[in-house]
Design a protein around this nucleic acid. Sequence first.
RNA 1: GGGCCGUUAGCUCAUCUGGUAGAGCAUCGGACUUUUAAUCCGAGGGUGGAAGGUUCGAGUCCUUCACGGCCCA
Length: 495
Amino acid sequence: MTGEPNDLRVHRLQKLEDVRASGVDPFKAKFDRDRLVSEIDTAYNAIEPEGRTGDLVRIAGRLMALRRHGKASFAELQDKTGRVQLYLTADALGEELYDTFLNFDIGDIIGVAGEVFKTKRGQLSVAVASYDLLTKSLRPMPEKWHGLKDVETRYRQRYLDLIMNPDVKETFIKKTRTIAILRRVLDERGFLEVETPMLHSIPGGAAAKPFVTHHNALDADLYLRIAPELYLKRLIVGGLERVYEINKSFRNEGISIKHNPEFMMLEAYQAYADYNDMMDLVETLINGVVEELAGSVKITYQQKALDFTRPWRRLTMIDAIKEYTGRDVSFAMSLQDIVAVAKELQVELQPHLGKGGVITEIYEKHVEHLIEQPTFVLDYPLETSPLARKKPDSPELTERFELIIAGREVANAFSELTDPQDQHARFEAQQANKAAGDEEAHALDEDYVIALEHGLPPTGGIGIGVDRLVMLVTDSASIRDVILFPQLKAKPAEE
RNA sequence: GGGCCGUUAGCUCAUCUGGUAGAGCAUCGGACUUUUAAUCCGAGGGUGGAAGGUUCGAGUCCUUCACGGCCCA
């Protein structure tokens, strides 16, 4: 073979043809396995070295290592639960089947049947009595020891990442469990899971730029939703009283360590409740996840200790600015004086901002990223909260909070604005901002105002960034590490 | 959008100030009946991200571009 084709894939294509020529289907329809690798480990790990069990097992998975030693060899088979060693001998299989097995490639998917035993070195193994090639692999696996590290390849070919890096698989299992826990807690509390449109005629429910698409038959532009909020509140108008949705929203903005254009959000709405109830709900939801996945309310995130012991700290935005910058701002000050503070703090300001907008900018630039422990930042300005109820005694503020953990917004909630006339006026104010250049100003949604005119009961609502929550419980530095296929620029396919 | 860093064999990485690219694993051939990053002998494998430029000579210096990472806006 020396001097023959040098491409690894050419070798494999040749092997594929050899398999076919021998009358064996290299892409089989199915294999009846009777257990998982982890079940073998659990059932037999206690046996003595060189102990035999007499139990035949049928397992299947990907061939991850092959150690050839003349007439007896070892291999490793990996299924979704782990790896087990295979032991192969020419005596047991016959020369021909033995040699055929040794000609398999790392990455091939095989099924085997054999007896469980332990080697004299104490390694639980399966002595292969028969085997089937189930899927021939035509491309090489990453290197066995260092694995797959190239970040771009890990994201673009996540399947390789999942094969090679067990902790990556564990992270995504935890993401699914997180969602299951959130569902369970809400279901137990009488919330109804619903699904609302992803395609919106008017994008609403958040301050964000939408993706635009087009419906051909209707000849109408539609927007991928930036939030499900306004539809969920329509359902509260409809008397469902407790609803939630866990699904994607889309925001046409920059990609960063904490932003992916499509992301998973939980939104829940509860009639006859306010934002204090939402604080209780979010503590319950997040602690449910943290305790179940981390086994404690104290976790480590990126070398920082986080303590989720309830109740979490509550701090108004004004007090937070005072605490983290040492500066006093208040609505009693003139806009000019507040702007002067912002300028001293090097905060860049858009010209249309009022007092509340400037205060929010100061908070976002100088405070939010410094808050590490779970903290409810309360009382957001009315100006930046067009869907939230006014605080009764402070008309410039709303009954709204964001939950900040490890410097990032994890949840956002408020007592919902139920007054349709106030809502309409807020939307109009947003249109003025839009005219002044605010690209994230909330759209005017008359249909939603009509829904409010039919009567939205007092309602508390909450949104939780599920990806960011999963980042915390999996100690992931980037949102891309908790999204199976994060957004990357398209790259021409190889070959 | 800006700054910094990266892109070399299938994978993980080397290649001091410019002198025609190396290792380990993987692959191919051979030896080996309890190995487990198996070992031993031998072999093949690179348009060094792309395109230009400087130079006698560029993976190395310069420019532009692509993709990725981190930070900032």
